[in-house]
Simulated scan of single mutants.
Amino acid sequence: MYEWDFGFLWKYRTLLVGGIGYTLLFTVICVLGGLAVGLVAGLGRLSRHKVVTAPLRAFVEVFRCTPVLVQLVWFYYALPVLTGIEMSAPVAAALCLSLYGGAFYSEIIRGGIISTDIGQTEAGQAIGMTRGQVMRRIVLPQAFRKMIPPLVNQSILQLKNTSLLMVLAVPDLLYQGQVIAHDTYRPLEVYTFIAIAYFVILFPITLWAKRLEHGNLTAKEA
């Protein structure tokens, strides 16, 4: 019978707290970077010019159709060889996850915009608004309400994707847990604690996402 003992983890509290802090900080950076990329790509894909939409569509499909783990390894090892620009593991990981998230954010943003009633756009143009004014004052405020739940869900996935950073030796929570497990030979307690830590962080966010989604459905019914 295996005897569980979590008491030894107190000795490694500095590593664990640091890993949690690094994971959260990295998530914030990647979410903000992904939203910036997604906004540019999502709006760009609404352009009428194929010169603009074609490369953006290629970008979205490449990042959506390849595993994020492969992307992380490629960005860290292959991209410096191709560009001649050396990158640290955290920089390569942040760039990769921001672009990866941006590909999904862009589709959410584009979908929210095109789902807005076309009559709203026509009404704005009828009173003399430019296309940009219609987008800023009419379309985006309405579309943003629809975007919030899927944007939050994608951000949750961004946080979970940070667990892959351990392959690049980035000191996130899972990497620190691996260090502790190798040092103590008690992986069951270590990885159980890590799973609980992720759950404690993510569960309130998932509840918030469900409340937002429920609020949108209630608004539509009203």
Rank of each mutant, 00 (worst) to 15 (best):
V170F: 01
A94K: 03
Y2T: 02
T130R: 00
I118K: 03
V152W: 13
N216E: 12
I138S: 11
D172K: 00
E122N: 03
G128L: 06
I148H: 10
L173V: 12
Y12M: 06
G34T: 07
N161W: 03
L174A: 00
I156R: 07
L39I: 13
V62K: 04
G132Y: 03
L164C: 10
L32F: 12
T53V: 15
V62Q: 11
L207A: 12
T206A: 14
A54M: 08
Y175F: 11
I180L: 10
A222T: 02
T184K: 03
L202W: 12
K160M: 11
V17H: 09
A103H: 08
I29Q: 10
G18A: 13
P80T: 02
H49E: 12
A92Y: 02
F59V: 07
R110W: 08
T116W: 01
S155R: 02
L188T: 04
V60S: 04
E213F: 14
P204Y: 07
A58D: 06
D183W: 14
S155G: 07
P141S: 05
M1F: 13
Y185C: 13
R48C: 11
H182P: 01
L25K: 05
I113M: 12
P67N: 07
C65M: 14
F144H: 03
I156Q: 14
T184E: 12
A209N: 09
L39D: 08
L159R: 01
T66Q: 11
T162I: 05
A169L: 08
E189N: 06
L43F: 04
L72F: 00
Y12R: 07
L202Q: 14
Q142G: 08
P204H: 04
S155H: 12
V170W: 02
L168A: 07
T23H: 00
I201Y: 10
G18V: 13
I20R: 00
E213W: 06
R45D: 00
Q125N: 04
P67A: 15
G38V: 08
A222I: 13
L217S: 03
L212T: 12
W10C: 04
V17I: 10
L43Q: 12
L46W: 06
T121H: 10
R145H: 13
L159G: 00
T130A: 15
L9M: 09
V17N: 06
R110E: 09
Y191D: 07
V190E: 05
F144R: 05
A209E: 11
K210N: 15
V200P: 11
T192M: 11
P141F: 12
S106G: 03
R137Y: 12
V167L: 03
K210W: 10
L95K: 04
P55M: 11
C96T: 13
F75S: 01
V51N: 06
I118M: 03
A58W: 05
G18Q: 13
T206M: 09
P90R: 03
T162M: 14
P171K: 05
Y2W: 15
F59P: 07
F59E: 05
L168M: 10
V51M: 14
A195H: 02
A78D: 09
Q176A: 12
I85H: 09
H49P: 03
M1G: 14
N161M: 07
G128N: 02
G34E: 08
E213N: 12
A93R: 01
